[in-house]
């Protein structure tokens, strides 16, 4: 059933917050697959369950029903420590507000997953510098987050999400805090990482960002209401913007 190219597979995932009368169903029986080399956009209005989907995909939360598998491993069957290890080695997060640690330099922020995984400091730093060069800010490696612009910080966040050969990138409104032009730059970077072989899940509410995706999943009230095929949604592209 699972193909080797399927990096993320959600099967019948339901997530209920709270119990009894106060129970809120954030997701209901959601299934979808993100394959290697593919960027999937998840769209929907506020409260549709987009962010819940990302926390489940990243193993930060567990589904009430259904299974979440990353690289063929059911996250529900893993212990906390193994989950953390998955996040260090297989899954990368990009947040709307960057979530860099202000006390650490850019290179140290990027090296963090590797260091947490037990890599030698020097090796981790080297990998971090390479990752920063890939996102085009190799010269800012020793700056602290508050010495950088928002776009530069988000590049650092992307470098942190991809460092160390991780195959699943989960991006939660990564351009939300950026101006249009910088946002496009960031999406181009994400797209490039997916083209290089990673699977990407991009949560966004802006239709034009979905244009960068291979597929778009529409969520409303926790249910997948529409799913475009594997064909690019060129119709949503604004004129003059091509990848």
């Amino acid at each position: 059933m699972t193909r080797s190219t399927d990096v993320l597979q959600l099967t019948g995932v339901t997530r209920v917050h709270g119990e009894g009368a106060t129970a809120v169903r954030a997701l209901h029986s959601v299934s979808f697959i993100a394959s290697a080399g593919e960027l999937v956009a998840v769209m929907g209005p506020s409260g549709s369950g987009k962010s819940t989907l990302l926390t489940l995909a990243g193993g930060l939360d567990t589904p009430t029903e259904g299974t979440v598998a990353v690289e063929g491993r059911d996250l529900g069957s893993l212990r906390q420590a193994e989950l953390a290890r998955m996040r260090r080695t297989s899954i990368g997060y990009v947040f709307q507000d960057f979530n860099l640690i202000p006390a650490l330099t850019a290179a140290e922020n990027v090296a963090m997953p590797l260091e947490l995984d037990g890599a030698r400091t020097r090796k981790a730093r080297d990998a971090a510098r390479t990752a920063l060069e890939e996102v085009g800010i190799g010269d800012l490696a020793d700056r602290f987050p508050d010495q950088m612009s928002g776009g530069q910080q988000q590049r650092v966040a992307i470098a942190r999400a991809v460092v160390g050969e991780r195959r699943l990138i989960l991006a939660d409104e990564p351009t939300g805090a950026l101006d249009t032009e910088t946002g496009e730059e960031i999406l181009r970077l994400l797209r490039a990482r997916c083209d290089a072989g990673a699977a990407g899940v991009l949560v966004t509410h802006e239709a034009r960002h979905a244009a960068w995706a291979d597929r778009v999943v529409f969520l409303r009230d926790g249910v997948v209401v529409d799913e475009t095929g594997s064909s690019p949604v060129d119709a949503l592209l604004e004129p003059g913007l091509t990848r």
């Binding site: 420590a81 290890r85 996040r87 947040f95 947490l116 995984d117």
Partner: peptide, 16 residues
């Protein structure tokens, strides 16, 4: 708190 949340998201174990 936010920093620790970030650490968790990038894969810090419970011991971190």
């Amino acid at each position: 708190r936010p920093d620790l949340a970030t650490l968790a998201a990038v894969g810090a174990g419970p011991r971190t």
